[in-house]
Amino acid sequence: MDLTLRSITHRYGDTEVLRDVTIDVPSGRVVCIVGPSGCGKSTLLRIAGGLERAGGGQVLQRGHPPDGCLNPLTYVFQDFALLPWRSVAGNVELVLEDHPLSAAERQATVADVLARTRLDGFRDALPRQLSGGMKQRVAIARALAVRPAVMLMDEPLSALDAQTRELLMDDLVGLWTRQPFTALYVTHNLSEAVRLGHRVVVLSRRPGRVREVVDLDVPLPDRHDAHPDLVRARDHLWSAIRAEAAAADAELQDA
């Protein structure tokens, strides 16, 4: 299933946040959105998954979600959004309980996604016992459990320290390589964008418009920080975003 955002505009009161944003997320690809803080990237993601109503424009799902898909548009949140009173397995089960699945099917799905995110040994742990990186892996496992057509990832690694972020990026690349998923991935971190994105969309500062679209052809498993194409792409993105970021920063200070 492809996801298309067509001419999305949005405003909060008098402030225009998004202006005529059109983004296409083709099936099996990871599209990253980068932009200075306050450019409306998170708002755009909330609109993409139906958590917020757009002021104008349309979000379209094209084609059919994959077989067994329980929740076509599935979020991974920056703050993990795990229920603190449920164990790791319980948090994954939560999103399956409202679907007509037998107990055995449910258990099988939980076991499968926990294995894929290497959380087997932590089934019964409570969120407060886990590190930030582990929590986000639980959230990713929960998202995988509903077999999403498109994953909407809102700065999923931003709350983590640099080393954990590296490890989780490797995990995400591994997950994608074994079973390609479709994702719209919002981040402010350019290294993340060039490591994980098949396409990087640069938004301008408020009101957010599409400033540039960069396609990256290097296969995900071959990517590493020193890859010359990626270094070039990152430098290019930074030069595109730098002036905007500086201006956005000054703007916030005025406000």
């Binding site: 599935t74 979020y75 949140f77 509903v146």
Partner: peptide, 12 residues
């Protein structure tokens, strides 16, 4: 945030 998570997964 937790309620929004529940909505985003289509919980009843």
């Amino acid at each position: 945030g937790l309620i929004r998570m529940g909505q985003s997964f289509g919980l009843r």
